[in-house]
Design a protein around this nucleic acid. Structure first.
Lengths: 336, 336
DNA sequence: CGAAGGCGGTGAATCGATGCAACGGCGTCG
DNA sequence: CGACGCCGTTGCATCGATTCACCGCCTTCG
């Protein structure tokens, strides 16, 4: 069926071992033989079977990446960073999407185990640590992305989300807002919980500022819009004067809801700040203030850490990289 | 190192063949034996090595997907559709990003060949047909996504981009615009070329309407913004009164440039329509009119076609699915 | 002149799951 | 009572690339 080293060897009049040497250690082979073998490869259109190669090697050249939501540009940027870095090391990335669901996360981890991936990068759900420990015990190095250091024994690359939440709310307070609403959820996602806790801390530092938590089911435009509609329909006295959305997708949804009404102005009536600073934030109906994270960098650094663990074994001291987020002020909080 | 069927067989006191039967054809094995083997599997934490399995099978359970730009929500939606459909058939999708570059496209195709993927879905660049024919000759079924039927011998799933371009410009003409600019590129990308040709056709059907083509390097927010700035800085008499952007990313960029000036109003001074109707289109500074495509559906249908080819062999009559695009009118063309 | 060493090349064993031909034991039927 | 058939199980060959111990040949040097 398919052309194998055996066929190449036959045509070139050498043994299979030599063909393999030409492929992997050409310096060990006479230039003239290399030439003959190359000619045979070209004329047969031989393509090395990576599956067999991996079987022999006992280790694949693939990295598994599980993110919470591929629809979120933050994660596609992160994935792109990881892919580029992996490509440099001649590795491939399989991208899995857990949709914030344990079942899907598990399914991808199962798959990765069966594929004997080189390692796993994951932005895990709250309850998956046990599973990850098992993975590691099976010898698959794992690096947590977008998740902090508190977790024993894993390397991680993350952004200080508590600081980010603090930044956002301190900014809202600094422009004189006092009734702040946090729109986000589910709180079982650490990013959400941390951003909220940073927000709480900022509220505590500012007298007279209150925080209301509006929980949404998932971090999507749709759920943001639903939450925004609920806020819009409240009597004026019960409306917050500022909203901190747990990410930009939610913020965009809230913004849609608020501006569709036509009666509420952003930021005059309600200031709005998101999180992630995705490309579209600056192009929103009212350009969104946001908290910027170095998304691609997170991905590439995570791959670096992973490769280091692969080389030095899992006992290698685990490393934690924590980036600091950055406040980006636009019209949705400070007007035009 | 890793636990294999051999270990399981030893512990359960059966042969490796029986373990394999339990895994793949449990009905052929006495329930009692199945129990013993299962117990051994659980107690050892055995995980089937998919690499070896694939080698034996000669065929992987992975589909390769190459898209022009993962940063474009249209393609992530498409990928998601493909993934979901693939998951139903117990297959995995590897997502590759060509970034509109032949070199990267080639690299992914090489990779897929080496991995002996089950099949390839690709939204190809202009010059890659020859390469794809070779792929097919090697026995790897290929389905073109977002690319039409004109290409001999490939199944395809696409959207009628000529119709879409026509729709967009006919709409602009119907609201009285006469000096229309098309912003898009590179024209070597078929989608771009088709949308332009549809636009041209619409212009021909409306007296007094002219079309100017402004070529951009790539379909991104950034390049859209650059083009927008150039338009903004023209003297008023040379400015178009409507812009048709080849996709929503470009449209968003143009919109940023126009509205940052503060002097130009959309749609009063310049009407703007995009293409793809990504989620963010409706949340833009001025909600964007656009041409909607069923992105996820394109992905899932493509996987269906691919699987059909896998089953029936490449000689199977090739199928072409063409979706019709849909005009979505928002404030960027008809005001508030 | 013979032993040692270097070099290019060989070919069989190996990775782990699969699947098939063969086998043994047991019940059935002539 | 022997032949036959059935069924569960076995054991080995197989997929294709890699690797390593080994081989033959030529050079070099004591």
């Amino acid at each position: 069926m398919s052309i194998s080293v055996r066929d190449v060897a036959a045509l070139a009049g050498v043994s299979v071992g030599t063909v393999s040497n030409v492929l992997n250690r050409p310096e060990k082979v006479t230039p003239e033989t290399v030439g003959r073998v190359q000619a045979a490869i070209d004329s047969l259109g031989f393509v090395r079977n990576d599956v067999a190669r991996q079987l022999r090697a006992g280790r694949s050249r693939t990295i598994g990446l599980v993110v919470l939501d591929v629809g979120n540009p933050f994660f596609t940027d992160l994935a792109r960073g990881a892919e580029d870095e992996a490509a440099d090391a001649n590795l491939t990335v399989i991208l899995g999407n857990s949709d914030e669901t344990i079942a899907r996360e598990d399914a991808y981890l199962d798959l990765f185990e069966e594929q004997r991936v080189l390692g796993v990068l994951i932005s895990p759900l709250a309850d998956s640590m046990e599973r990850l420990v098992r993975l590691r015990e099976r010898g698959i190095p794992t690096v947590l992305v977008d998740r902090g250091t508190e977790n024993g024994g894993f390397s991680s690359v993350s952004v200080d989300d508590v600081a980010g939440g603090h930044l956002a709310v301190a900014h809202l307070a600094s422009i004189g807002r006092t009734r702040i609403a946090f729109v986000g959820g589910p709180q079982s996602i650490r990013q959400v919980a941390d951003r909220l806790s940073g927000a709480r801390r900022a509220v505590d530092q500012h007298d007279g500022v209150t925080l209301e938590v509006i929980e949404v089911e998932s971090q999507s435009v749709l759920h943001g819009r639903t939450a925004g509609e609920a806020i819009r329909d409240r009597p004026e006295s019960e409306r917050p004067d500022a909203i901190f959305a747990a990410n930009d997708l939610i913020a965009v949804g809230v913004l849609q809801a608020l501006s569709m009404a036509g009666t509420l102005r952003v930021p005059e009536d309600i200031a709005l700040i998101g999180y992630d600073d995705i490309d579209f934030a600056s192009a929103a109906i009212v350009p969104l203030s946001s908290i910027r994270q170095p998304s691609a960098l997170i991905g590439s650094r995570a791959v670096e850490l992973l490769l280091r663990e692969v080389e030095h074994g899992a006992d290698f001291m685990h490393e934690h990289i924590v980036f600091q987020p950055q406040l980006v002020v636009r019209a949705s909080t400070v007007g035009a």
